[in-house]
Design a protein around this nucleic acid. Structure first.
Length: 426
RNA sequence: GGAGAGAUGGCUGAGCGGCUGAAAGCGAUCGCCUGCUAAGCGAUUGUACGCCUCAAAAGGUGUACCGGGGGUUCGAAUCCCCCUCUCUCCGCCA
């Protein structure tokens, strides 16, 4: 959510910035509702002030055994007018709130203007594309031939976009989770968190999934529970409605979670393989920072995600999302795209964002500086470190051998019980 | 799932229709005192929104907030209803 005062005072700037994202937001309606709200508020507060003083007078008279029936009669009509105004105010605030909750964040000034992913500038690359003396296969073929990914079983027991992992495949998934958690906690200074995989609607609203993107979520029927689409939601909400100590900032958490996405609107896209699943695993990093340090922290967070791919020896590039490709809540996002030789393409494997105060305002997460008493909103950031399923994809495709086996990256072997190569077994 | 008890400021905890934005204690901040430390004394000590002054910082003023929502009343932390959460006991259960 944007600051309502900021919108009011910078309405043309906000209009222009949101237009760069390709969002058509009715700011005229915002101005009308905002004006109306303040008009009603002034009237009702004046009436309340009158009522408070007269009620005191009534109390005083009654104490002295005097008659107050004239004042009581007068206040009866004032009270009913207050009630009317309260209802109008509530309705106006409801509309205004609905409007501001569906407004996306304003892109940071460094974000380039563009309309889609083809406009995202490449910031840097690491490593090189591996060379093969055979035609590299896509991971779904490698996985099935090694009998470590069973797409048919996933479809049978659940449906499309679900997969069963077997043997070394299941072990590889688990190894990656532990490897990444160990790296981020022991070398990058994050505190490990394990949260519920379901949250209530209030949490989903704080991080920006609701009210606008309900169709992307799985909801548990008959309850207020939603399956989380990312650990960002529960982890960010840990500090909802709190005032953090400045000395604790920046707070840095890392959490493994399963993630659940309805993938509405992506029919026909990435239908094969592990790329786009209804359920996948992810290790997520979340930070709460002072405003002035959030962009430095974004660079560090992105570097922490990059380090995972470097240790695994997977070639990747980093793109800086343009205004048209930026997520709803984000002010700036770097995507890490891993090279997938089986598909001859770079694919997103991590997304690192600075939300500035957008989520903090929705979630009411603040801090107080030691030298003064004024509370301020923190900046929130998060990034995948990394998406586990897609990392399996990258390993299978980059480390595949001519004989169909897959070499295990050296850093991962301690987590694989020393196994250095995945081969087909019965 | 059944029965009961609770939810008040940074914390502990009073209040149970008007004198309460809220006693008291603790904590914190500032000042005084003190060779240092401790003790002591004094003052201050929430948030949000609106309006006014205003370049701003800041100040003034009003309203709201005692788990959340609704109701009764001239007036609600206080009475009534619904919900959520916490605790205790019973049942069930990985």
């Amino acid at each position: 959510m944007l600051d309502i005062k900021f919108i009011r005072e910078n309405i043309d700037l906000v209009r222009a910035k949101l237009k760069e994202r390709g969002d058509a937001i009715d700011l005229d309606q915002f101005s009308t509702m905002d004006r109306k709200r303040r008009d009603i508020l002034q009237e009702v507060e004046t009436l309340r002030s009158d009522r408070n003083s007269v009620s005191k007078e009534i109390g005083a008279r009654k104490q002295n055994g005097e008659d107050a029936s004239d004042l009581i009669a007068k206040m009866g009509s004032v009270s009913s007018r207050i009630k009317e105004l309260d209802e109008a105010l509530k309705e106006t605030e409801r509309l205004l709130h609905g409007l501001t909750m569906t407004m996306p964040n304003i892109p940071h000034e460094s974000v380039v203007r563009g309309t889609g992913d083809e406009d995202n500038p490449v910031v840097r690359k690491w490593g090189e594309k591996p060379q093969f003396d055979f035609e590299p296969k896509p991971h779904w073929d490698i996985g099935e031939e090694l009998n470590i990914l069973d797409f048919a079983a996933g479809a049978k027991i659940a449906g499309a976009r679900f997969t069963v992992y077997r043997g070394a495949g299941a072990r590889l998934e688990r190894a990656l989770i532990n490897f990444m958690l160990d790296l981020h906690t022991m070398e990058h200074g994050y505190t490990e968190i394990l949260t519920p995989f379901m949250v209530n609607s209030e949490s989903m609203t704080s991080t920006g999934q609701l009210p606008k993107f309900e169709e992307d979520l799985f909801k548990i029927e008959g309850t207020d529970y939603y399956l989380i689409p990312t650990a960002e939601v529960p982890v960010t909400n840990i500090h909802r409605d709190e005032i953090l100590d400045e000395k604790d900032l920046p707070v840095a958490y890392v959490a493994y979670s399963a993630c659940f996405r309805a993938e509405a609107g992506s029919y026909g896209k990435d239908t094969r393989g592990l790329i786009r699943q209804h359920q996948f695993n992810k290790v997520e990093m979340v930070k709460f920072t002072r405003p002035e340090e959030s962009y430095d922290e974004l660079e560090k967070l992105t570097a922490n995600a990059e380090e995972v791919l470097k240790r695994l020896g997977i070639h990747f590039r980093i793109v800086d999302l343009c205004t048209g490709d930026l997520g709803f809540s984000s002010a700036k996002t770097y995507d890490l795209e891993a090279w997938l030789p089986g598909q001859n393409a770079y694919r997103e494997i991590s997304s690192c964002s600075n939300f500035e105060t957008f989520q903090a305002r929705r979630a009411n997460i603040r801090f107080r500086r030691e030298e003064n008493s004024k509370v301020e909103y923190v900046h929130t950031l998060n990034g995948s470190g990394l998406a586990i399923g897609r990392t399996v994809v990258a390993i299978l495709e980059n480390y595949q051998q001519k004989d169909g086996s897959v070499i295990v990256p050296e850093e991962l072997r301690p987590y694989m019980n020393g196994v250095d190569r995945i081969v087909r077994n019965k």
